[in-house]
Amino acid sequence: MDVTPELVRHLAELSRLRLSEEEIERVIPELRSVLGYFERISDLDVDGLEEMVRPIFSANVLRPDVAAAGLTQEEALAMAPDKEDGFFKLPRVVEEGR
């Protein structure tokens, strides 16, 4: 796959990135290098190799999933720095009209 300025522009658009023409030109050799490594990896003969998830053995240590009593609404709200009408009150993070 050839890395062209058009391809970089397309990838930038899909990634919601705004790249200047200088950045596009700088990214082209970097992308070619990364794709070159993938090509080298795909050329490796892995027939007969045992599948491996991790290079070292590890196991998840999980507690049993047992239902337990939680906090009451009053207990939870007692820890809240700001509350209103029985709910946590937070600053607005979404602009209206979007």
Score class of each variant (00 low, 15 high):
residue 89 K to W: 10
residue 35 L to I: 08
residue 98 R to A: 04
residue 52 M to A: 13
residue 13 E to K: 14
residue 39 E to T: 11
residue 22 E to Q: 14
residue 18 R to G: 04
residue 95 E to K: 03
residue 86 G to N: 04
residue 62 L to Y: 03
residue 76 A to G: 12
residue 6 E to I: 03
residue 57 F to W: 11
residue 29 P to N: 12
residue 54 R to T: 05
residue 71 L to Q: 11
residue 29 P to I: 05
residue 84 E to H: 07
residue 48 G to V: 01
residue 29 P to K: 05
residue 73 Q to G: 14
residue 11 L to E: 14
residue 90 L to N: 02
residue 57 F to N: 14
residue 52 M to F: 09
residue 72 T to S: 15
residue 25 E to I: 11
residue 26 R to V: 12
residue 40 R to W: 07
residue 11 L to A: 12
residue 91 P to S: 02
residue 74 E to A: 12
residue 41 I to F: 06
residue 68 A to G: 01
residue 84 E to S: 10
residue 41 I to H: 02
residue 14 L to V: 13
residue 78 A to M: 03
residue 54 R to H: 13
residue 56 I to A: 03
residue 21 E to Y: 09
residue 77 L to D: 04
residue 1 M to L: 09
residue 82 D to T: 12
residue 37 Y to C: 04
residue 21 E to H: 09
residue 88 F to D: 00
residue 60 N to L: 11
residue 23 E to T: 07
residue 44 L to M: 10
residue 8 V to C: 06
residue 24 I to M: 06
residue 23 E to H: 11
residue 5 P to G: 13
residue 38 F to C: 07
residue 64 P to E: 08
residue 7 L to C: 07
residue 30 E to S: 14
residue 37 Y to D: 04
residue 84 E to M: 04
residue 59 A to S: 06
residue 41 I to A: 10
residue 42 S to I: 01
residue 59 A to C: 06
residue 30 E to C: 14
residue 97 G to M: 00
residue 93 V to E: 11
residue 3 V to C: 01
residue 8 V to A: 00
residue 94 V to K: 02
residue 90 L to A: 00
residue 14 L to I: 14
residue 85 D to A: 14
residue 69 A to M: 06
residue 69 A to S: 03
residue 6 E to R: 08
residue 97 G to D: 02
residue 9 R to D: 10
residue 10 H to P: 06
residue 46 V to C: 07
residue 75 E to T: 05
residue 65 D to K: 07
residue 36 G to M: 03
residue 76 A to H: 12
residue 86 G to Y: 05
residue 16 R to P: 00
residue 66 V to F: 00
residue 82 D to N: 08
residue 92 R to F: 00
residue 59 A to Q: 13
residue 31 L to E: 07
residue 81 P to L: 02
residue 66 V to L: 04
residue 36 G to V: 03
residue 94 V to L: 08
residue 16 R to K: 15
residue 51 E to H: 11
residue 11 L to Q: 09
residue 79 M to S: 10
residue 81 P to D: 05
